[in-house]
Design a protein around this nucleic acid. Structure first.
Length: 307
DNA sequence: AAAATTTGACCCGT
DNA sequence: ACGGGTCAAATTTT
């Protein structure tokens, strides 16, 4: 019987926290995998020509929507929890600011002060707590939507800039969806050479634009333009309150082996997709917009070169 | 010419 | 005050 007492409440908390965090990670991973699967499956179905493509696309959308909602719900729970046990958490995790975000209700802080500034326009700024979904993927551009880049920023302590996108139909249809994409730091050291470039994608808001006006023929390579050079890297998709990092992998036991195995399967999968697309393009020559469904562009190791 | 991206300034939450 | 999200003029691409 040593010091296993006073910390009992906090350790329990950590346990819960750990478990829910693990659950969140798994769910985010699921999202990443589904996203990647979609990038592989949809192009194939499209090329096979089928009215099924739309159905399948819808199903993918639904699946992703489900997990996004589940993630959001779980996050809310975590948030509540952390508020209730604020004191404990705050004292226990002083040095982990990113993990516990305390929500201060009042915070009058800096009001008054009505200086006469140029007052360009009232900008709504996204808040960190807003519902969002984050995930990591090698195919940040394929998500079935069209995006318009509206900014790029160099983020502290990161090697690659973050790109900001809003729905192409923001104007016409007032769609509020946005997303950010940022290439992940290549985690070297492992023996894995051709490790796929991964992008962190965070999705904010729901799409309210109607897909009807944007069928496959219209969907352009939302990213074929000029990326990759000076620093226009992109990321993929997500939408949650905090940054959940996911790595493509499958269920398992041994962490290390898991990573390796999953990465390999991931690469294989993507290679297959690349081959598929290339083959089809060569064969039909008219490529029915394969590119729009196979965002294997800049930086990544895809064999396909759209142009 | 129109549409999309780049880029630096602007602004706001922390 | 700082960091990062957004705006909008300039530039590039289509």
């Amino acid at each position: 019987m040593k010091h296993i007492k006073k910390s009992s409440s906090s350790s329990r908390l950590f346990c819960d926290d750990d478990r829910s965090a693990a659950a969140l990670r798994e769910m985010a991973r699921e999202q990443s995998l589904v996203t990647q699967l979609r990038a592989v499956v949809l192009p194939a179905i499209q090329l096979a020509g089928g009215e099924r493509a739309e159905v399948v696309a819808q199903m993918f959308e639904s699946i992703l929507d489900c997990s996004a909602k589940a993630i959001a719900a779980l996050k809310l729970l975590r948030l509540d929890h952390s508020q209730v046990d604020d004191e404990v958490l705050l004292t226990a995790m002083v040095d982990d600011k990113t993990r516990v975000r305390k929500i201060v209700p009042g915070d009058g802080g800096k009001d008054g002060d009505d200086n006469a500034k140029p007052l360009r326009r009232q900008r709504k700024r996204r808040r960190l707590g807003d519902d969002s979904v984050a995930l990591e993927t090698p195919v940040p551009h394929y998500d079935g939507h069209q995006w318009r880049k509206y900014g790029q920023k160099i983020i502290n302590h990161t090697k690659h800039p973050r790109s900001y996108y809003k729905c192409t139909y923001k104007q016409e249809q007032d769609c509020k969806a946005t997303k950010t994409v940022q290439q992940q730091q290549q985690q070297q050291d492992g023996g894995i050479e051709d490790e796929p470039v991964m992008y962190a994608v965070v999705y904010y808001g729901q799409h309210t634009c109607k897909p009807g006006q944007t069928d496959a023929a219209v969907v352009q390579t939302a990213s074929s333009g000029r990326f990759g050079e000076g620093g226009g890297e992109e990321l993929a998709r997500s939408n949650s309150c905090s940054n959940i990092s996911v790595t493509c992998s499958s269920v398992v036991v041994d962490n290390h082996q898991l990573m390796t195995a999953s990465l390999e399967s991931c690469c294989n999968l993507l290679d297959m997709a690349g081959d598929m697309a290339t083959a089809e393009v060569n064969q039909y020559d008219q490529l029915f917009d394969v590119a729009s469904f196979s965002p294997f562009d800049s930086g990544t190791a895809w064999a396909m070169d759209v142009n």
